[in-house]
Amino acid sequence: MKKLLLQNQLCFPLYALSRQVTAVYRPLLDKLELTYPQYLVMLVLWEADNKTVGELGDKLLLDSGTLTPLLKRLEQKKLITRQRNPADERQVTITLTEAGRDLQALAADIPTQLQASFQIDDQQAIQLRQQLTTLLQQLSPTNESNQ
């Protein structure tokens, strides 16, 4: 196998797929007036509210420099509030507002619509997610076998 051919690269289909998936999400998220990264934050908060910026960053694999402007925009949209911990000013807790909670009902069908656009069934979706999650974990900087 010629390793320097584009068709033999694992990275290219992952990159192209990521762009395509984001493009499929765009019209669905435009209805909610959310960007894809904002949607990811909302997913984490809908799962469990009152997260610190650090907890969000850990869950989404994003640093605070990336998260902070994103969170500010969500706060401007009145979907979240940000509050500093009085005991530790460096820690900021993110909480859903009522509007943020209400948005969850409007987003409820997005995963189904996305899966339909992929033309895969539930079992295929589960297998693909497991494979991608395994690869992500193997590449994670915290995975000691990579160091």
Rank of each mutant, 00 (worst) to 15 (best):
D58F: 09
N8K: 14
L43Y: 01
P27M: 09
N50Y: 05
Y39D: 01
P111F: 01
R82E: 09
Q20E: 11
L32W: 05
P13C: 05
A23Q: 14
Q20S: 11
T134Y: 15
P27N: 10
A87L: 13
P27I: 07
Q137C: 14
D102K: 15
Q7V: 14
T93V: 15
Q76M: 10
Q131W: 10
R129F: 11
D102Y: 08
T95P: 02
Q137G: 15
V92G: 11
I80G: 00
L128V: 08
R101I: 03
N50F: 05
L103F: 02
R26M: 06
L4C: 07
L135T: 05
Q115R: 15
E89H: 13
Q119P: 02
Q130S: 13
E98Y: 04
L43E: 10
L139C: 07
E144M: 11
Q115W: 05
L103T: 00
D122Y: 12
N50Q: 05
Q115S: 09
S117Q: 15
G54A: 10
G65M: 05
L139K: 03
P111D: 00
V41D: 02
I126L: 15
V44G: 03
D49T: 07
E144P: 11
T134V: 10
L79C: 03
L43R: 09
P13G: 03
R101W: 06
W46R: 02
L43C: 06
E89Y: 13
N85G: 08
N143Q: 04
L135I: 09
A105K: 09
L40P: 00
Q124T: 11
N8E: 15
T93L: 11
S18Q: 05
F118P: 00
Q131G: 14
N146S: 08
L45C: 02
A125S: 14
L28M: 13
L62N: 06
K59A: 10
L6N: 09
S145T: 10
Q76G: 06
P86L: 06
Q119A: 11
K2W: 11
L56S: 02
L128I: 13
Q123I: 07
A105F: 04
L60P: 00
P141S: 10
R84D: 10
T93D: 05
Y15T: 05
M1G: 11
Q119V: 04
V41Q: 03
D30M: 12
L45I: 01
P86R: 06
I94E: 00
L62R: 15
L96Q: 01
T93R: 11
I110S: 03
L71K: 01
R73C: 02
E98L: 07
K31C: 09
L106Y: 04
S140W: 12
L4T: 08
L74S: 00
L139W: 08
Q131S: 10
K78F: 02
K3C: 04
K77C: 00
Q91K: 13
Q119I: 03
K3S: 08
R84H: 14
T112M: 12
L56P: 01
P141V: 04
N143M: 01
N8S: 14
R90E: 14
E144D: 07
V53S: 10
Q123M: 07
E75C: 04
Y39T: 00
Y39H: 06
L74H: 00
G65E: 04
L4S: 10
T142C: 05
R26V: 02
N85E: 15
